[in-house]
Design a protein around this nucleic acid. Structure first.
Lengths: 135, 135
DNA sequence: GGGCACACGTGAATC
DNA sequence: TGATTCACGTGTGCC
């Protein structure tokens, strides 16, 4: 119940990066079905984000411009960071046995209960080993 | 090294929600030093985000308006989800013993190695129990 | 001052 | 349809 293994797991959007490939689970994750790096290869998004907060003191009224020259580095760095934590989420998925639901919060929760389970089991096994045993 | 326990851990910005309280580690997390809910209590951001993608087919040219009436629900839901996974991250923090660095990726990585460690230890303890033992 | 890490609002997709 | 979840670009604080 509530776990479809033939389902997207962590939903993958990729609407900006790859307009095709609509339902492959996590196609931009490393070591899934790609060569070591999925080869970003398309920098053609050109986002031009304009954001106007109101009622905020705005520490600095800086912002050089929204000409897509300098902040492109930031975007790429954030992409990389995101991909990294998703990889690790995926690795966690492989290590925790009984996943109840396929979202990050549940996976994390299952991992925690699994850890405490292992800890408890290990501890009672230990106390059984050198306690009043049959020897 | 590289682990300052008197440091913000997961850095908390709160620039939009709370202009005060600049350095308390995670002031908006539940059961930290607040009553059960930190009481969102300020809906005054009024962000009016305008985003202009280029070279994108844009599935639907819908968007009713940016009058802050309906999408406010979505914003709140996402805030809640974010808070939830952060809580669980915090819970994981309490369960994993040797945290090398205080960011989400490292915490997750340490959790994974800890799990595999426990698994290995448990398995060899088990095989030692009913193997050719001293009895 | 550049790099890093995080929170945020938002679009989209799934159910 | 409405709720839930995720990825994304962005703002920003800290080293």
């Amino acid at each position: 119940m509530s776990l479809n293994l033939n389902q997207p797991l962590f939903r993958e959007k990729l609407t900006v990066q790859k307009p095709d490939n609509p339902r492959v689970p996590f196609a931009n994750w490393v070591q899934f079905n790609n060569p070591p790096r999925p080869a970003p290869q398309d920098e053609r998004e050109v986002v031009t984000g304009i954001l106007t907060h109101e009622k905020r003191p705005r520490k600095r009224g800086r912002k050089p411009a929204n000409g897509q020259e300098e902040p492109l580095n930031h975007v790429k760095a954030e992409r990389q960071r995101r991909e990294k934590v998703n990889q690790i989420f995926y690795a966690l998925l492989a290590v925790v046995p009984n996943i109840s639901k396929m979202d990050k919060a549940s996976l994390l929760g299952n991992a925690i209960t699994y850890i405490t389970d292992l800890q408890k089991k290990l501890k009672e096994m230990e106390s059984e080993r050198n306690g009043p045993n049959n020897c």
